[in-house]
Design a protein around this nucleic acid. Sequence first.
DNA 1: GGTTGACCAGAAGTGCGATTCCGGTCAACA
DNA 2: TGTTGACCGGAATCGCACTTCTGGTCAACC
Lengths: 231, 231
Amino acid sequence: MSHPNRERADRILDAAGELLLRMGYRKVAVDDIARAVGIGKGTVYLHWRNKELLFQALMMRESADLTDEILGRIEADPATILPHRMISASYLVTHRRPLVMAMLRGNADMFGSLGDLALRKQQDELRTQFEETMLRHGLIRSDVPNLTYALNASTLGFYLGDTLSGEFEGIPLEEKAEVLAYMIRTSFEPSGEPDPRAVADVAAELGSALEELVSVYRKGIYAHDPTRAPG
Amino acid sequence: MSHPNRERADRILDAAGELLLRMGYRKVAVDDIARAVGIGKGTVYLHWRNKELLFQALMMRESADLTDEILGRIEADPATILPHRMISASYLVTHRRPLVMAMLRGNADMFGSLGDLALRKQQDELRTQFEETMLRHGLIRSDVPNLTYALNASTLGFYLGDTLSGEFEGIPLEEKAEVLAYMIRTSFEPSGEPDPRAVADVAAELGSALEELVSVYRKGIYAHDPTRAPG
DNA sequence: GGTTGACCAGAAGTGCGATTCCGGTCAACA
DNA sequence: TGTTGACCGGAATCGCACTTCTGGTCAACC
């Protein structure tokens, strides 16, 4: 038991994700997943203590991949960390991942999967650090009232708009991302060209924070906890 | 039947609103409403052909009052029509009306009440006219990409944020409205002082459009249609 | 030691008859 | 003529027994 096959774990997660998209959390039986992979049901339990942890792992892997994607963009072009580019890139990357979108939408299904996870704290800290770093380097205006709320509320509608109403379904994702970028740039960034030095510094600082986040994610994916809760 | 008492109609709507807030659409029986007013159930049907129309009337009255409130502000100070003030004023006024908020939230309950109403078209036209007029008078920047979507998506989060998550519950409504105003002003309005002449013109133009809307609302409230649908 | 799948308990779903509820009508009444 | 409330039918809800499903375990097997 000491070292369950990591490659097999990934195959399990692949199958779980596929089934999740097709049938929703409720309808996916652990047995289905095992059969799809061609292993016994018990084997799944060698990897994760229960069904919920399995799906948590799936979401963590998805989040890790997503974050990696953003990291890649930052490496390719440090200016990606500019708020309007960072936020619109996140929007695009998120919307192109069906599992993540399903998670964002699926309030009813699979709640708790990431809801009460300790990762929330991690993500909050990242957000706070993002804002603080940007402010410190002058890449976000200092006169924005209630920055945290402002960013949240202004951005939220872009994520939720598609879900309800479907009024703007026809607009291509890229165009929506550009609208979001426009709004962030005009409302939250100073006018004029950003200082390249500041950009490089922030890219380094945020890059390592993101790498840290990815490693926390990845650690969580395969961490099956053999201890049993008392009681 | 020809002229059911208008004052009585208002008392019925008062009771309906109160009960609606307390128990939700489903649980409110027409009998409850009648009893609360102290009249017979049949009398209610002298005013509206069925329950749904009654609640539609309630929502129209609420919308009319709300619009009137905004009109009052415009009259008191024409500069209220500036996008950032108009939108934040609407936000405030809306959030202070429990019935309207209940309507916005209550997807499950009372759907169709205003959903498939022809008023949508009316409101869409108003929105379009708002944008078009603002652009024409130079009170909205002409370089905003996809203006309609931009305004919608940027604003939506402020209305929905409170509903889900409750993360920012502690922030006073006025402060949130100011954040919204800041975002609209910086993203959608030109820099520099607005031309007072343009403000006055737009105030007049939009004022009459809003008055028109109010009169459509008011007409709808008491308009019981004696004709019966065929079939 | 690693893996399996038959097995179990309890949770979730189903079917359906009995019951309650309530929107809408209309004969009777003031 | 305006108003009422008893009444009706259909729809929603409830109760409950019966069935199916499925997360998790563990003895047996490789």
